[in-house]
Amino acid sequence: MRHAFRLCALGLAFGLFAQPASATDPTRAFQDFPAEVLTDGFLEAHLDLFYRKAGTAADKRGDFAEARKQYQLAARYADKPSQARLGEIYWEGQGVQADHVMGFLWMALAAERGYDAFAARKMQYWNALTPDERKRAVTLDQKMLGEYGDAVAKPRQATVMRREALRGTGGLLGYSGASSLSITTARGGNIDPEVFYAKEFWEPEAYWQMQDYVWDGRSPGRVDIGEVQDLGKQPPSDAKPKDEHP
């Protein structure tokens, strides 16, 4: 599936945050998977993307309270861009009282895998904290990791992906080569099955490796997509977001 992987890498939605000193412009914040892949069924299997896209839509409307809620749900499924955006929201006080400690903690979670852009912002935030704020951050660090760190968030996401892969793709997971197979969307478009059923989209370890490929700086480019669609249907979530404020 290396061919499919190369196609995916060119059109991914794990976007690179822009690097201005101010908060990220939500209209340019993320790259995306090829638009035709993002069917309702695909998003229900990838709750990290589902909730991040909902958060981005709210961000575009200027509804930061709703954006924060959706990003927090995405953060439970190991979505590093959503965790980074939460860091910015709390740091800047967008739709919530500014809280530099929570801003740092969310950005630290986003930097957990060592992605340069988030790691640099994490250090920027840390250096701006007061001694008392640093003490508070240390006391809350394990609580945040216990709810949103990769050790718990990745298995949470993997469970959903495996369940939906068995339900929706069956024996076609890892599909390759059958030219007679065609996937038609509800809007009448067609999806390349070699892309849609690529292992990098459905097998958890390959999925994380794909994210690392994009976020470690080797991704060859960015792709912008149109407006978010079809988010009225909320898939069942195994938990509601919690209030992290002590």
Rank of each mutant, 00 (worst) to 15 (best):
residue 77 Y to W: 05
residue 6 R to H: 14
residue 75 A to D: 05
residue 241 P to Y: 01
residue 190 N to G: 10
residue 177 G to K: 07
residue 10 L to Q: 10
residue 76 R to H: 12
residue 153 A to N: 11
residue 33 F to E: 03
residue 81 P to Y: 00
residue 116 D to R: 07
residue 192 D to H: 02
residue 78 A to G: 08
residue 8 C to T: 05
residue 120 A to V: 02
residue 68 R to Y: 04
residue 70 Q to T: 04
residue 24 T to Q: 04
residue 56 T to L: 15
residue 79 D to E: 09
residue 122 K to Q: 01
residue 161 M to T: 08
residue 85 R to I: 05
residue 64 F to N: 07
residue 206 A to G: 09
residue 16 L to D: 12
residue 9 A to E: 06
residue 168 G to R: 09
residue 81 P to H: 00
residue 181 L to Y: 15
residue 64 F to S: 13
residue 128 A to L: 03
residue 29 A to N: 08
residue 33 F to K: 00
residue 7 L to G: 15
residue 243 D to I: 05
residue 161 M to A: 15
residue 206 A to F: 02
residue 31 Q to C: 09
residue 154 K to S: 12
residue 127 N to Y: 05
residue 232 G to A: 09
residue 114 G to L: 02
residue 94 Q to R: 14
residue 55 G to F: 03
residue 4 A to I: 04
residue 32 D to N: 12
residue 22 S to E: 05
residue 108 A to D: 09
residue 125 Y to M: 02
residue 229 Q to R: 06
residue 18 A to I: 05
residue 130 T to K: 03
residue 194 E to D: 08
residue 191 I to Y: 05
residue 195 V to P: 03
residue 134 R to W: 00
residue 86 L to I: 09
residue 82 S to L: 02
residue 165 A to R: 05
residue 39 T to M: 01
residue 33 F to T: 05
residue 51 Y to P: 08
residue 51 Y to I: 02
residue 133 E to D: 11
residue 186 A to Q: 01
residue 192 D to W: 00
residue 169 T to S: 10
residue 7 L to F: 09
residue 111 A to T: 12
residue 246 P to S: 00
residue 14 F to Y: 03
residue 47 L to W: 01
residue 31 Q to M: 12
residue 6 R to M: 08
residue 88 E to Q: 10
residue 171 G to T: 07
residue 182 S to T: 14
residue 178 A to W: 03
